[in-house]
Amino acid sequence: MANRIILNNVSYHGAGAIKAIPEEVKGRGFKKAFVCSDPDLVKFGVTAKVTSLLDAENLDYEIYSDIKPNPTIENVKTGVEAFKKSGADYIISIGGGSSMDTAKAVGIIIANPEFADVRSLEGCAATKNPAVPTIAVATTAGTAAEVTINYVITDVEKERKFVCVDPHDMAIIAISDPEMMSSMPKGLTAATGMDALTHAIEGYITKAAWEMTDMFHLKAIELIAKHLRGAVANTPEGREGMALAQYVAGMGFSNVGLGIVHSMAHPLGAVYDTPHGVANAIILPTVMEYNAPFTGEKYREIARAFGVKNVDNMSEEEYRTAAIAAVKKLSEDVGIPADLKEIVKSEDIEFLAKSAFADVCTGGNPRDTSVEEIKALYEKLI
C-alpha cells in the first residue's frame, strides 16, 4: 500500500512571515483578495496587520467577516454569494479554524458549484477542481487549518458538525507567524494548544499512521510539551514554538486522520457551541486510557516526548500511565477544566454518542468502538 502526503506548495514560518504576502500576490498575478476573517479579529485590528500590507502596495481586497466560531452552512452560503459579487480571484483567510474552514468551503464551491448545498461536501466529496487559490494566515496555534485538507461545518438544523476531507481545498500558501498570535488571550491559547496536542497524539496512534507522520507527530508533541505553558504566558519563545508545533502536527494528521476524541468533540460544538479545543482537551486523557491497550509501544514514545525520564525501564502499564499523566498535567497547568459536568446534559448523551459514532474521524481510532462504548466515555466525563 502506498502512503500519500499532501502539503502546501509554499509555507512561511517565523516572526514577520506575513510580510511575504504582497510579493507572493504580485508574483502570481492575483488582482483582488476575498479576505475571510472573523469579526473579533477585524474589530481588534488583527486582520489589519495583513490588509495594511496590501494597502501599502495598492493591492485590492474585500473583507468577509460573517463567520461564527463554529461556522455554519449559512455562513458558507453567504460567503459564496459575497465572493461572487466581490470580483475577487483569490482568497486570504486570516484566523483559526473558523475563518479557514469557511474559506475552504467557499473556495471549493466557487470552483465546484455542484456542491452549493454545502451538505454534499461531507466526507470525501468527489470534487473535480482545486479551490480558489488561497493564502492561509494562522492567528491561533492549534487548528493547523492552513496545512490540512480537512474542514468542519456546523449543520444548525440537524445539530451536528460534519467533516469534509478534500485535497482540493489545500491553501497554496501557508503563513505561520507568531506575531499574528500574540494577541490571543490565555484561554484561547490554552484551548488551541491542547487542540494541537490532540491532533499530534491522535494522528500518532491512528490506524493509518506510518513512519513519516510519526516523525511529525512526535516532534509536535515534544514542542507542545516544551512551549505551550510559555505561549499561555505570552512569551515570544512560547509563541514561536507553538506556531511551529501546530503546523508540524497538521502536516501529519491531515494525511492520516484522527480518532474518537475529535468524534466526541464535534457534537459538543454543534449542540452546546463548546470551543473545539476545550472539548478535545477535556476528552483526550479519558480516550487515551480507553485506547491504551491498542497502541503497542507508542505511549512510551509519547511519554518520552513529554520529557518523562527512564521510560525504557518502565513496564507497558507504567509508561502508558506516565503518558496520560503528562497530558493531564499540561491540561491542568494551562487551565483546562477536568470534566464535562458544566457542558453536557445527561439526557443528550444518546444523541451525542450516535453523532460521534457516525463522525468521519471514528474510523481512524486505533480501537474499534460502538455507540454504547462512546456513551460510557461521555458518562465517565460527567
Rank of each mutant, 00 (worst) to 15 (best):
252 G>K: 05
245 A>D: 11
10 V>S: 10
189 T>Q: 12
169 D>T: 14
209 A>G: 10
216 F>W: 07
376 A>N: 10
76 V>Y: 13
98 S>E: 10
133 P>D: 09
98 S>I: 04
48 A>T: 01
113 P>L: 09
177 D>L: 00
24 E>A: 11
326 A>N: 02
270 A>L: 14
352 L>S: 10
308 V>F: 10
212 M>E: 07
154 T>W: 07
377 L>V: 05
242 M>Y: 11
356 A>F: 07
47 T>M: 12
83 F>G: 09
121 L>F: 10
180 M>H: 05
258 L>K: 13
345 K>V: 03
160 R>Y: 05
300 R>I: 07
265 A>G: 09
229 R>H: 03
350 E>T: 01
276 H>S: 07
319 Y>C: 05
309 K>V: 00
362 T>G: 14
202 E>F: 13
68 K>Y: 01
328 K>V: 00
144 A>R: 05
210 W>M: 12
355 S>T: 06
54 L>A: 02
285 P>Q: 06
231 A>N: 09
202 E>W: 11
99 S>P: 05
284 L>I: 01
53 L>A: 04
97 G>C: 11
346 S>C: 06
347 E>N: 02
215 M>H: 10
31 K>V: 05
148 T>P: 12
225 A>S: 15
164 C>A: 15
349 I>D: 08
323 A>H: 04
281 A>S: 14
255 N>A: 15
257 G>C: 11
283 I>M: 12
70 N>W: 01
139 T>Y: 10
20 A>G: 09
258 L>I: 05
338 A>P: 06
273 D>M: 02
371 V>F: 14
340 L>H: 07
91 I>S: 13
369 T>S: 14
164 C>H: 01
268 L>E: 11
124 C>V: 04
247 Y>D: 14
369 T>P: 13
26 K>W: 03
57 E>Q: 07
276 H>N: 09
283 I>N: 10
348 D>Y: 07
81 E>G: 01
236 P>S: 13
102 T>G: 10
206 T>Q: 08
367 R>K: 13
216 F>T: 02
68 K>P: 07
37 S>Y: 02
316 E>Q: 09
130 P>I: 00
266 H>A: 11
99 S>L: 09
271 V>L: 15
18 I>H: 05
147 V>S: 14
208 A>Q: 10
359 D>G: 10
130 P>Y: 13
48 A>G: 08
123 G>H: 08
129 N>Q: 11
310 N>V: 00
162 F>R: 07
134 T>Y: 04
320 R>V: 00
5 I>M: 15
238 G>E: 08
288 M>N: 09
